[in-house]
Design a protein around this nucleic acid. Structure first.
Lengths: 247, 247
DNA sequence: CAGTGGTCTAGACCACTAT
DNA sequence: TAGTGGTCTAGACCACTGA
């Protein structure tokens, strides 16, 4: 515990307990020293100790019980969190060359089906477009998207290729996106999807439907994405030693 | 801001800014008052203000810039987080009746293939079993699992049905589970899977492979799960008004 | 009852930003 | 240089747990 260091004391203390837990010197169920004991032991303020502990709590490594103490938690391995952030960046990170191609773009008046999907009146002006995202020249994802088109901002191709759908929705609607709902399903490729993605009809794919809402909960955009099942998968790491996992 | 309330001041303050942001009175990019201004305005300590703000930061609603101020963030709608926690509980929550049935359970010596999957020596004693999970009598998931079997603890059927695979692995191995890796794929049902799940071969399914590791990063369990694509889907909500989303 | 974590205060010094 | 958020302190009172 180096008080003169540029590294904050609470951070050093947190890392100290993290390593104690990871190495097994503190096992699940074990009690940490009380906050006052830790403070006296390292000659630091109790508030500084509390900051370190509160970070350990939010990372799930320890839990506190009022009037009792602070205890090492059991790793929650049943939890599953799949993160799929920026598709474009993910491809790049894997050392592949990403590419987005706009297949079609159109301003249409919403028919009944689309009006229902977007929760808008029939004949409302909408922007429709479809893009294919590929990695190293091989098509991976096929995305079809609709947004309301209330502004008359011109459509720029780079905008359509923007991996952030919400940014596009913001540019062409007078309501700004506030929330999003995505549903992921397992499916098989239709004739059209198979053609675009260069796979066989009936081949396994991920199918994702996305809704974007404004602050009042009204829909302002809708999109569906199809990902090739043989080229795309989701990975989740849980626990305390996830950096030690090799394969 | 009620100082006499049992509700902590920092919590009241946080909710105050949350509602300001959600209602649009504070828009993305807007600066919050400085910490000292807030403290003076409500006659509270700066540390209390900081606690409220730090919670807003970790929820992603605001961000701070040293020497400049605190600003309202733009909602990150590109992020996708799929949580699939306790399968059993999830079915119950949806008002359905969950049921787990053990199809087969066996103590085997690891052949080459399994030894490789678990990173152990050939002929190591392993516990194998397969279960089917159903909702309202309809099969939803088919799970096949292996763990090393170094302890000689007897196998209890309720243990096999335990939705927490890690708990089972803990009971039968002398090494305790520390980390987990799960990979989710889109696939189509094999003949065997189709039979068990009462669907057609080639029907879309989610396919998930799970590894469980001990603190040293050594594998202690392996399992695969097949979920019916027509009965199971993953949903992700992002943004600041996710409670207002109706459908 | 003594001991625990939870909340809160009124200061202090620092590094950083903008002017 | 003045103002900002980041860190830290040495107290205080509280509600809760267990003996």
């Amino acid at each position: 515990m180096d008080k003169k260091s540029v590294i904050p004391i609470y951070y050093q203390l947190r890392k100290y307990f993290e390593s104690q837990i990871r190495s097994g010197q503190l096992k699940p169920g074990d009690a940490l020293p009380t906050e006052m004991e830790i403070a006296n032991l390292f000659n630091i303020s109790r508030m500084t100790v509390r900051r370190a502990i509160s970070e350990l709590v939010s990372s799930g490594m320890v839990y506190t019980q009022k009037g009792k103490g602070t205890f090492v938690a059991r790793p929650r391995l049943d939890k599953v969190v799949f993160n799929l952030n920026n598709f474009y960046e993910e491809i790049k990170q894997k050392g592949m060359v990403p590419h987005a191609e706009v297949l079609e773009t159109r301003i249409t008046k919403a028919d009944e089906k689309l009006a229902k999907k977007l929760g808008i009146a029939v004949n409302t002006k909408c922007l429709y477009f479809g893009i294919v995202i590929s990695a190293n020249g091989e098509p991976i994802a096929y995305e079809t998207k609709y947004t309301v088109y209330t502004k008359k901002t011109p459509i720029i191709e780079s905008q359509l290729k923007d991996p952030l759908f919400s940014r596009l929705a913001e540019a062409h609607s007078d309501r700004s996106p506030s929330s999003s709902k995505k549903v992921l399903m397992a499916s098989t490729a239709t004739e059209e999807e198979a053609k675009v993605l260069d796979i066989k009809p009936g081949a396994p794919v991920f199918f994702m439907v996305q809704h974007i809402y404004d602050a009042e909960g009204k829909k302002i955009a809708w999109g569906k994405s199809v990902y090739r099942g043989d080229r795309y998968k989701l990975t989740s790491y849980e626990g305390w030693n996830i950096n030690d996992i090799k394969d």
